[in-house]
């Protein structure tokens, strides 16, 4: 890949999806764009960029930018954090909101494993405190094809075994003739999916009691992280909690949120940490 090609693609990723791709990781570009390049018949990244510039096609540019975002995920990633979300955070939110209803948003949910993991936990070990509650789980991703993949809920041999016990595979999925494992209808119905770019206004997605945005901000440039976190903060229902991935922090990036008391990796709207129970 020529230097100019790398620069073009790194700029595109930065502007449209806030991604910071250092030159030392230019291999990520090739890996993430290989499917598009193959489909469109480009022999090289240089060809792809040449066409991108010549065509001036905003839809294609957005697709390329979306493809440049990491899709790395697996079932029950950071198992303890998900357990905490279901066993502690959701019951506390339900008690505080008094509506009998909870809304959960997996922001940057890629192929849906995190959202389905939550739904599986709620189906297998529903905490007593959540009995009778209506819990909506929404998962969004910047990438259209990834969102469609998530909605279809079909996983291959390796993905289905990454994080799921065989008990859970057999209880919640059915093997198709293609060899893919498809989530049963009950599981598919427990989660909804939307395409959404976290750089953009999210008010159309509504207010959420819990937002999980894990291992998403860490791929973004530092200034963008603060902006995205502020957009997420606006979608938190009063007293709602934002859960980040292990090792991720907003310290020094935004004043809109502060660490939640008693919730590891949890962030709440500034000035409410003392009120937010867990």
């Amino acid at each position: 890949m020529q230097d100019a090609t790398f620069d073009e693609l790194a700029d595109l990723a930065m502007q449209r999806s806030g991604q910071f791709i250092p030159k030392s990781k230019s291999y990520l570009i090739e890996a993430r764009l290989s499917a598009i390049a193959r489909r469109e018949g480009f022999g090289s990244m240089d060809d792809l960029v040449h066409t991108l510039k010549a065509r001036g096609n905003a839809v294609f540019a957005a697709e390329v930018a979306a493809a440049l975002v990491s899709k790395e995920t697996w079932f029950f990633r950071d198992r303890h954090a998900l357990t905490q979300a279901v066993q502690e955070v959701l019951p506390a939110r339900l008690k505080a909101s008094n509506t009998g209803r909870l809304k959960v948003w997996c922001a940057g949910g890629a192929t849906g494993q995190e959202a389905y993991s939550l739904a599986i936990m709620l189906a297998d070990n529903l905490p007593v405190a959540l009995r009778g509650a209506r819990i909506d789980i929404l998962s969004t991703d910047i990438c259209k094809s990834v969102t469609e993949h998530a909605r279809k809920a079909q996983y291959g041999h390796f993905d289905i075994q990454r994080g799921l016990s065989i008990h859970r595979v057999l209880a919640h999925f059915k093997r198709q003739e293609t060899g893919q494992w498809e989530a049963l209808e009950t599981l598919r119905n427990a989660v909804s999916f939307r395409q959404h770019n976290l750089m953009e206004d999210a008010s159309g997605l509504g207010q959420h009691d819990v937002i999980l945005c894990r291992h998403v901000l860490s791929g973004m440039a530092r200034p963008v992280r603060g902006v995205v976190a502020e957009r997420l903060a606006k979608q938190l229902a009063p007293g709602g909690v934002l859960l980040l991935g292990e090792g991720e922090s907003l310290t020094g990036l935004t004043k809109a949120l502060e660490p939640a008391r008693n919730v590891r990796g949890g962030w709440v709207v500034e000035g409410t940490a003392n009120a937010a129970a867990a």
Binding site: W74, F76, F158, Q161, R162, G163, S165
Partner: peptide, 13 residues
């Protein structure tokens, strides 16, 4: 077939 990710996640499970 298996890979390192599968064995690791199963052992964690």
């Amino acid at each position: 077939p298996f890979d390192a990710d599968i064995i690791e996640s199963k052992f964690a499970e």
